[in-house]
Every structure is written in structure tokens, then in C-alpha cells.
């Protein structure tokens, strides 16, 4: 098991029902894609928020990453929809 600090934004935050949390994840969770798959097993709210897994964007330590990125050593992992600023 390892500990991950997660932050959520926009409709990912609303659907999960919280802006941040710290979770223990199994050692088999290696990448962002593994993390998304694991989160979807935690309940209906996660399943709904992360249903379209390919549109979810991720950042590790406040830098954009692809879903294949390993999460080992991450201080903070953020999950959010495509950005709509400007």
C-alpha cells in the first residue's frame, strides 16, 4: 500500500463530492491509468466522475502528465476535466 494525496477540480470535484483526500492505494497501482481504474472501484460517485476515463486530465506535483505516467513519489496528484479558461 502507498499513500496518495489527491485533489479534484470542476465537475470531477462535484461528482466525487470533495475537493481533496488522502487515500491508501494497493502497490499494483503504478500509473495514473491504474489509479483511475482503482478509484472507479471505490463507489458510484467515483464511477460517475471518471466514467469517460480518456477525457480526464492529470497533473503530478502541479505539472501536466499523461495517463501512463508513474505515480511513485508524487506529493500531489490532481484530476480534472479539460480546461476552459481564457
Amino acid at each position: 500500500m502507498s499513500t496518495v494525496n489527491l485533489v479534484y477540480f470542476s465537475w470531477v470535484r462535484e461528482r466525487i463530492g470533495k475537493g481533496e483526500e488522502t487515500l491508501e492505494v494497493p502497490a499494483a497501482v503504478v500509473t495514473i491509468a491504474d489509479l483511475l481504474a482503482h478509484l472507479k472501484t471505490l463507489g458510484e460517485e467515483y464511477e460517475t466522475a471518471l466514467e469517460h476515463q480518456n477525457v480526464i486530465r492529470a497533473a503530478i506535483n502541479q505539472e501536466h502528465v499523461e495517463h501512463g505516467e508513474p505515480i511513485a513519489g508524487a506529493r500531489e496528484i490532481a484530476l480534472f476535466p479539460p480546461m476552459t479558461g481564457g
Partner: peptide, 14 residues
């Protein structure tokens, strides 16, 4: 700057 800001700066509009 605007083209990249819109697609990669973490802001969301409701």
C-alpha cells in the same frame, strides 16, 4: 500565449 493558456492553464468555467 492565449492559445496555450486556453488549453493548458488549469481554469474551469461554470
Amino acid at each position: 500565449i492565449m492559445d496555450f493558456l486556453k488549453t493548458s492553464a488549469p481554469f474551469w468555467k461554470k
